[in-house]
Each structure stands twice: as structure tokens, then as C-alpha cells.
Design a protein around this nucleic acid. Structure first.
Length: 127
DNA sequence: TGCGTGACTGCCT
DNA sequence: CAGGCAGCCACGC
């Protein structure tokens, strides 16, 4: 990667989301913590602006802290997200919430963080 | 060329 | 215990 051009925040967000394995989910805040110098809303912004060219980004695996798919302007997108997650093997309760205790992503490994140029800050893992 | 807007979360009162 | 506010990038009109 070019070192003279730092990856924009959105690009870093996509990078982290790509690391989420199928059958696992992460929250906006969790992704933000991993990216660093980034807020949960920023992650939401990044995913909302996700270009079609980034089809390899499993955006459906990012949900809100309540364990539910975040409602938005285009409800069809919300339904699609849930559908894609179920295909990943993620089940929802009758309250439309996922079981964090079972599908919560543990996060990337320290070597992954280093290999991708992220700060291996342990703060988000201790939590 | 400037402003509004868009997939959120945690702390404080 | 619940509601409110601050945080802050990129893109389109």
C-alpha cells in the first residue's frame, strides 16, 4: 500500500468489516474502536456510503449495540441485512435481536492489526 | 464553493 | 431509570 496516502477513514472501516467472518457480527462501536480515531456514527456513515464496487465488504455483519439491525430510511435494506445474516447462520430472537453471547465477533488478532496497519490497542479487547 | 445529511454510542443529568 | 447531547468523514446539490 502507498504510504504517502493514508487510507481515508471510510477505507479503514471497510478493511475491518472485511475481517468479520461469516456467522459472526460486530457492533458499530466495536468496529469504530478497532479502526481508532473513529466514532460509531462514522462507521454508520461509512457503510451508508458503501460503493457498489466494495461488494466484498460484509456490511450485514455490522449491527447496533442493541443486537438489532439498525432501522433506516430504506426499510428494504434492513430486511435484506437480516436475510443475509440468517444465510450466514445467525439466528434472531422473536424480538429481532441476535444472541451476542453466541455470535459476537471476538475481533481481529494482534497480527492482523499489525499486518493491516492498525493500532493493536488492547483497550477494546479488555472490554 | 458551502452546507446538509446519513447504518450510532456512551456518558452525564 | 430514562432522556438528551456531543462526537465528526465523505459526498452530492
Amino acid at each position: 500500500m502507498t504510504n504517502d496516502t493514508r487510507h481515508p477513514t471510510y477505507e479503514r472501516v471497510y478493511e475491518v468489516v472485511r475481517a468479520i467472518p461469516a456467522g459472526r457480527v460486530a457492533t458499530y462501536g466495536q468496529v469504530a474502536s478497532i479502526v481508532g480515531h473513529c466514532t460509531a456514527r462514522m462507521v454508520g456513515y461509512a457503510l451508508a456510503a458503501l460503493p457498489d464496487a466494495y461488494a466484498d465488504v460484509p456490511w450485514q455483519r455490522v449491527i447496533n449495540a442493541q443486537g438489532k439491525v439498525s432501522p433506516r430510511a430504506h426499510s428494504a435494506s434492513t430486511a435484506l441485512q437480516r436475510e443475509l445474516l440468517e444465510e450466514d447462520g445467525v439466528s434472531f430472537s422473536k424480538e429481532d435481536k441476535v444472541d451476542f453471547g453466541r455470535v459476537r465477533w471476538a475481533g481481529p488478532t494482534t497480527e492482523w492489526l499489525l499486518a493491516h496497519g492498525f493500532d493493536p490497542a488492547p483497550s477494546w479487547r479488555e472490554k
